[in-house]
Nucleic acid binder design. Structure first.
Lengths: 142, 142
DNA sequence: TTACTTGCAAACGTTTTGCACGATT
DNA sequence: AATCGTGCAAAACGTTTGCAAGTAA
């Protein structure tokens, strides 16, 4: 599991205070295998920090995303769940059953993307790629 | 531009009535170059059909999506805009400036996706791919 | 002490639901 | 005539904002 200190350091460098609520939310997000929604984070966080307010979850998510520590994950049925941000330019493969997420490199694709864009007269500025499937653990359960 | 009749035929086959509001909404979606949100559709539709209700827009979108005539488009900042559905398995390239959307084939990628999934022990069931860029027209404007 | 953060309440925009009326077949 | 669709009003939902009190540095 990722250590919490680096994230807190980055917060400090942005003139932010390292507070109880923020530590709890950060720990939850760093330790999760699947993308978590604001309400899920709120519910989990309250187990460790009962005073937690939903608004604080929203504001902390906004801040962590702004600092590139987490990223929003789009899935059929929800575009409001968060995962720790990948290092460099990686893509997600998500298990349809349990939601478990893994990152992979997509460097091989840049040439293809440029070719497609060229044919249509576009210049590419960004791409979204995400795979859905069944993870090994879920595949072994019947 | 796509003709409206085939869509209306498909509606009929689903025990639906071909009504004024539905025709207006279908025409708008069939003719659009960029993804439209419910409110945008509502506003445009009212120009042709002043009695149009926003609720009807939502219900028509739901029906058209269910019949695979339109598809939801995810973009940074909004996951609630619609475009006519691609034929077969195509992907989108969207202009960051004007929103203009084009489809392209991604058949070449299936091998890569399978390879990635295999390495991680996943079996792939679906994939989302979308490119963002600048379209020829916007590139020529300074 | 100062600036930032929190939780609450309320506001807001979007989407959904219930229902009586209207339209299509 | 029967069924399906519509628009309105209201409810439900997720998210954001204003503010006074609390907390970290």
């Amino acid at each position: 599991m990722i250590e919490i200190q680096p994230w807190m350091k980055i917060l400090e460098q942005d003139n932010c205070r390292v507070t109880g609520p923020r530590k709890v939310i950060a720990e939850l997000l760093m330790g999760t295998e699947r993308a978590l929604s604001p309400v899920e984070i709120f519910d989990f966080a309250r187990e460790k920090y009962p005073k937690m307010g939903l608004v604080t979850v929203y504001r902390t998510l906004e801040k962590l995303e702004e600092l590139h520590l987490i990223q929003r994950v789009h899935q059929p049925g929800s575009c409001n769940a968060f995962l720790p941000r990948a290092i460099g330019h990686q893509h997600l493969i998500i298990c349809e059953k349990c939601g478990k997420a893994n990152f992979f490199e997509g460097d091989d694709l840049d040439g293809f993307f440029r070719k497609v864009a060229e044919r249509l007269g576009y210049s590419v500025t960004d791409h979204w790629l995400q795979l859905f499937g069944i993870c090994p653990k879920c595949a072994s359960v019947h």
